[in-house]
């Protein structure tokens, strides 16, 4: 490498470093910092009146996972049950929004350019309204005297109002409603990218629609499916506004539990430990996603073997 080249290289490296420093520092301080605090707190002793005592303490996790058995800190399966229920509700939310979005994304991807943009704008439109207001609207719709029950009774389909509000169903409905755009956008991106000639190639080779779907369309749009699912799953799992408005006191999710520990019970280490449970679940999912995506990329731009031309 010539000297001039090397100087140029160095200068480029310096510019890159200069550009990347501020965001890196920002992330380190404001993202990793709080995370580190949470990790450390989850292993500390809860203070008597909130706060922490700087003594190592593993029973925060013991209370959740089963080995705490002292006078003050006892294992209670309810925490893990709430965690599992949250996973279940979040997974249901993911599944329903996936079923809702997948065909719609296909439909939109076939629209003419102008209409596409309009539809995508419409799908993101609810974001312009406060989350609380939107969820409260669902309270009004789903409650016994609300629109939904009134309509069904008016049509004579039911005699008594259905018990929907303050159930898991209501929570899932609310969360699906809120998170559908998060599912739609990554799904749409991968479906839009899907090469239609691959579908034709599949049919040309004798595959019917169902075979084509499972052998070509599904694997090719898998990154979008997994991406959308994770983006919906994460906020659903930790959600506490949805369950507190639509679930009432009956449907408590892990998000509500964490919120309570920090704000009312003032047991920060236990809240932190519960938070770590959520983190762990999310991390497992993310690792899985990264594996799928990198596999996909390796295929897209593998090393190109030199063209073999007959000598």
């Amino acid at each position: 490498m010539s000297k001039a080249r090397r100087t140029l290289e160095n200068r480029r490296r310096l510019t890159l470093f200069g550009l990347l420093l501020p965001p890196s520092a920002f992330l380190a301080i404001f993202f990793l910092g709080p995370l580190a605090i949470m990790i450390v707190y989850s292993w500390l002793t809860p203070g008597l009146y909130g706060g922490v005592e700087w003594k190592f303490f593993h029973l925060n996790y013991g209370r959740i996972l089963g080995w705490a058995d002292t006078k003050y800190e006892r294992f209670d399966p309810v925490y893990f049950e709430i965690f599992l229920r949250s996973v279940k509700l979040a997974a249901t939310t993911v599944l329903l929004s996936l079923i809702l979005c997948y065909p719609v994304a296909f439909w939109v991807s076939r629209m003419p350019e102008k209409r596409k943009n309009l539809v995508i704008f419409l799908i993101t439109l609810p974001f312009f309204i406060s989350l609380i207001v939107r969820l409260f609207a669902w309270v009004l719709i789903l409650r016994p005297t609300g629109f939904f029950n009134q309509a069904l009774m008016g049509l004579g389909l039911i005699d008594e109002p259905l018990e929907i509000i303050f159930t898991g169903t209501a929570v899932v409905i609310g969360m699906v409603y809120v998170f559908v755009p998060f599912m739609f956008l990554p799904l749409y991106a991968s479906i839009e990218k899907l090469d239609l000639s691959l579908i034709e190639a599949s049919q040309d080779l004798g595959a019917n629609r169902i075979q084509t779907f499972f052998r070509v369309i599904l694997p090719m749009t898998l990154p979008g499916i997994v991406g959308g699912s994770i983006i919906v799953f994460i906020p659903s799992l930790g959600n506490f506004i949805g369950p507190s408005l639509l679930g009432g006191a009956k449907v408590v999710m892990i998000g509500n539990l964490i919120e309570q520990q920090f704000l009312s019970a003032r047991n920060w280490p236990f809240g932190a430990a519960l938070g770590m449970m959520v983190m762990a679940a999310v991390l497992v999912l993310l690792l899985y996603y990264i594996r799928i995506v990198t596999r996909e990329e390796r295929q897209a731009d593998g090393p190109n073997v030199a063209e073999e031309v007959a000598a």
Partner: peptide, 27 residues
């Protein structure tokens, strides 16, 4: 009938072998 497409339209998520095997597998 089978087609060799202008841009080949090979399945990027499958190996060479599985690409070639495709029509046999679906049958």
């Amino acid at each position: 009938v089978n087609t060799v497409f202008q841009r080949y339209a090979l399945f990027p998520h499958l190996t060479v072998e599985r690409n070639v095997a495709y029509s046999l597998e679906v049958r």
